[in-house]
Every structure is written in structure tokens, then in C-alpha cells.
Design a protein around this nucleic acid. Structure first.
Lengths: 188, 188
DNA sequence: CGCCGAGTTGAACTGAATCAAGAAACGTGG
DNA sequence: CCACGTTTCTTGATTCAGTTCAACTCGGCG
């Protein structure tokens, strides 16, 4: 739980009273590998902080899923569009390893927004960060080759990337598994 | 200015007192066609609402710019990452037509965050919306063909798209102008 | 009127998709 | 803990969408 506080304090000053409200809502949950946390068509009801584990974001497809994100320990996860609009999710979240989460429900979060002085600020800054990351990603998809995206990913997240199956990485980069296999061969 | 209030009221309930604080900061500016509003390397100091006009988001390149967005009347614009982090912008904004903006500076916005009850909520919801739009775009870039992206754009923004030069649309869709020219020919 | 940028069209080339088959790794039950 | 079956990864051959280079047309505006 300290990990959560540390994370939040990077974003905004957090006194004990605010943290008290926030932390009183957090519930710890453990999930085994390959657990689907949010299914398409369901409404996301959680904002979760990963204490330990890896989570994949994807649109399920008969043949190959479209994987568009990975999150690791010390990051927040959610099918955030579904969560904030409380409408059906278009994509799924699934654990890739045994995973420990600290979770907040939608109504918990509304309470925090209403009963803390910093809740809205945290919410805003989190959304701003998400937006900036997506902007970076958009430009990478428009601008970089598949090979460049792979190399970037590798240099930024080496530790985790090595543990992710090639077929998911391929989809994230925007190519087929065969193509990524050949890219790897070429650059090694 | 009423347009701004109407826009904000779609996001959050806004009483006269809050609106008073907000609107007292707004300054109207007019720009001629092809004016660069933010240059790469500069820090964005404005959050602006388009009363009238069209603005293009792009990374300037010697040969072909990378155009990654268009905004039209009744939308907010900003090199938002630069604005919120107050660091150098990686991209530029440029008017494509004569444009009228209602503008807020960074410090104006901080005042609003501090002196209104709804400022932070608006900030959060705006960021959340930006995030959702980028998510949609990311999935389109991963999932759709260039042709599908063109058709979607066309069906969503027909009115404006017809006025945008092909070479910018091509870049936005992720292909060369020649390729888009052929796509158009094929589907017409 | 002439020029220049924007758009179109053609031809050759290329990176990645697709189809296919075999090798390696993985997990599950006996 | 091994054996089998399934999934993942690799490699090859073919196809295809889009790039690149180049030439030509069109329309605006200086």
C-alpha cells in the first residue's frame, strides 16, 4: 500500500488526512495468471494499482488479438474509457502473470473526488499523463518503422519485454508475429 | 463567448460565479490563415477555444510534415503536453483558415484551478476526453487499413474534411499523398 | 501571362501480409 | 516426471499495399 502512496506523492502533495480517505477505500486482490479483469461488453468498475504482476490490454479477435498495451508493477490500470463513462468496454484487460492489485471502485472514486481536496487534482493529472503517453504512441505509430518501435520498446522496458510472448509484442508494434520474428533475426 | 460557456456546460454544471471567474480571463484573438500558433521548441502558453476556423497539428519536416490532427470551431486547442508540463513543444499548431480564438494563459488556468469549485473538474474531464480520443485513434492506426481510416474520417467530419488539402489528410491517415490520391480514385 | 505548389498517374521497388510447414517450448494428465 | 498435444516461434515462398521517383496537368495568384 505504501507503493500507492509513493506513486501518488510523485503527482501531488498528499497530507495524512487526504491519504486516509484514499487508502481507506483501497482493497487488495490477487489474481492468477491469464485472469480476465475486464471483458468486452462489461462496464469497468475498478481503478487498480499493480503491486506486482503484468497486465495486457487488448481487443480479442478470433485469430489474433489486437494488443495495444502492457502495464507493470507500480502503475495504475483500468479500461479507463469504460470506467469514466460507465459504459461498455471495447477491450479487455488480462493478467499475464500472477498479479496483486489494490483496487478502487467507481463510487469509491466519486467519494474521493467529493471528500478530499486533492482528489480532482490527482484525477486530472492522471488523465493528463495518460493523454501524453497516447500522444507519444500516436506519433510513433505514424512516424517510426516497426523495427524502430521494437527497439524503442526494448530500450525503455527491457526488463519486462523479455517476458512477453512475441505474438503480443508484434501486435503492439503493429505487425504480424512472423514479421517481428524476422525483425528480431535481422537486428540480432 | 457564449459558445465557450455552452461547451463547458456540456461537461459540468457551471453557475454564474464560476463562469464569471472563467470568462474574465478569456481574451479574444484573431489570426490570419497559415499563422503558426505554437512553434517547436517554444513553450505553449495558451489553452484556446476555436470560435471560428481550422487548426492543424503537425511535426514540421523538411519534405513532408507529419500531420496528426485537425481541430475545428467549438473545440479547445493547445500543444497540451507542452502546456501542462511547461516544457518545449515537439510539434506545431497552425491555422489553416482565418481563425478566431478565445484564449487562456497557463497562469490564468492555475488561477481558475485555485479559485473555482469546478476548475479542476473541467480540467480532469477535458484531459479524460483527450485521452479517449487518442485511444480511439491508436486502435484505428493499429487495426484499420489506410482506406478504412479515410472513410471513417470522411463520414465523421465530412463538412471539414472536404476543405483540407489532400497532402495533410494523407499524412494524418498515415500514407503518402500519392497513395491517398489512389485510394480516392479507387473508392469513387 | 507565367510560375509554382498541389494533385494525378505510371512504373519499378520494397516491407510486410499471407499461406504453409516444420521446430521448439509449454503445460497437463497419467 | 515423462509423454503427448497444443501453442508459439521460425523460416520459406508468394502476393500485395504502399513507397519512391518521375513526368504531366490543373488552378490560383503574383
Amino acid at each position: 500500500m505504501n507503493q500507492v502512496r509513493e506513486y501518488l506523492e510523485q503527482i501531488v502533495a498528499l497530507d495524512d488526512k487526504n491519504w486516509e480517505v484514499f487508502s481507506s477505500k483501497l482493497k487488495k486482490s490477487e489474481f492468477s495468471k491469464k485472469t480476465v479483469l475486464v471483458k468486452t461488453g462489461q462496464v469497468e468498475n475498478h481503478l487498480s494499482f499493480i503491486e506486482k504482476g503484468t497486465v495486457r490490454f487488448y481487443i480479442p479477435k478470433v485469430e489474433n488479438d489486437i494488443t495495444f498495451g502492457f502495464k507493470f508493477e507500480n502503475q495504475f490500470i483500468s479500461a479507463y474509457d469504460s470506467f469514466i463513462t460507465q459504459s461498455k468496454s471495447q477491450y479487455q484487460l488480462e493478467t499475464m502473470t500472477p498479479t496483486t492489485l489494490w483496487r478502487l471502485t467507481f463510487s469509491d472514486l466519486q467519494d474521493i473526488y467529493n471528500n478530499t481536496t486533492v482528489g480532482e487534482t490527482i484525477g486530472r493529472k492522471v488523465a493528463e499523463n495518460l493523454f501524453m503517453m497516447k500522444t507519444k504512441r500516436e506519433l510513433s505509430l505514424l512516424n517510426d518503422t516497426a523495427e524502430e518501435r521494437y527497439l524503442k520498446l526494448f530500450s525503455e522496458q527491457k526488463r519486462f519485454i523479455k517476458e512477453i510472448p512475441l505474438k503480443y509484442l508484434a501486435s503492439y508494434i503493429g505487425v504480424t508475429p512472423q514479421a517481428l520474428s524476422r525483425i528480431r533475426k535481422r537486428i540480432s
